[in-house]
């Protein structure tokens, strides 16, 4: 394992996010890349066994509101290969169509950002 390039990986955290939702509402998480031609994976760790994964951009149902209350949900995107086109790496995160985080970092700061979102789903 090379430690030489460790500075290229940087973790960006968006903590204390909250999205009120009713018990029987489905919750959708969407990742939409704005920068071009990145190679990325997003893993969504929900309470229970129904973890999800999104390749680059995409949308996933992560469960009903009542199933997401017991623990925090973590959404982690790893940019494995940075955009060869753009100077910045940028993506938007939506929950049920509402923008909750817009991430943007210059490649000079990190070519391989790890973006962490910690979200709570309290009762609406």
């Amino acid at each position: 394992m090379s430690k030489k390039n460790v500075s290229k990986v940087k973790t960006y955290r968006y903590k204390d996010l909250s999205f009120p939702v009713s018990d029987n509402d489905d919750v959708y998480v969407e990742v939409k890349f704005k920068s071009n031609a990145d190679i990325a994976a997003t893993a969504i760790n929900v309470p229970g066994p129904n973890d999800k994964e999104i390749e680059d951009s995409g949308i996933e149902v992560i469960g009903k509101g009542k199933d997401l209350r017991s623990e925090m949900t973590s959404i982690v995107t790893v940019v494995m290969f940075p955009s060869p086109v753009d100077d910045n790496i940028a993506m938007d995160y939506f929950i049920n169509g509402k923008l909750i985080v817009s991430h943007d970092n210059p490649k000079t700061e990190s070519e391989n950002p790890i973006v962490v979102l910690l979200v709570k789903f309290p009762k609406l």
Partner: peptide
């Protein structure tokens, strides 16, 4: 190959973040 690496890393780091 790169997607597979990204998938493993994202999975482990999402669990660890919680």
């Amino acid at each position: 190959k790169l997607r597979l690496s990204a998938s493993i890393i994202a999975f482990i780091n999402s669990q660890a973040s919680s």
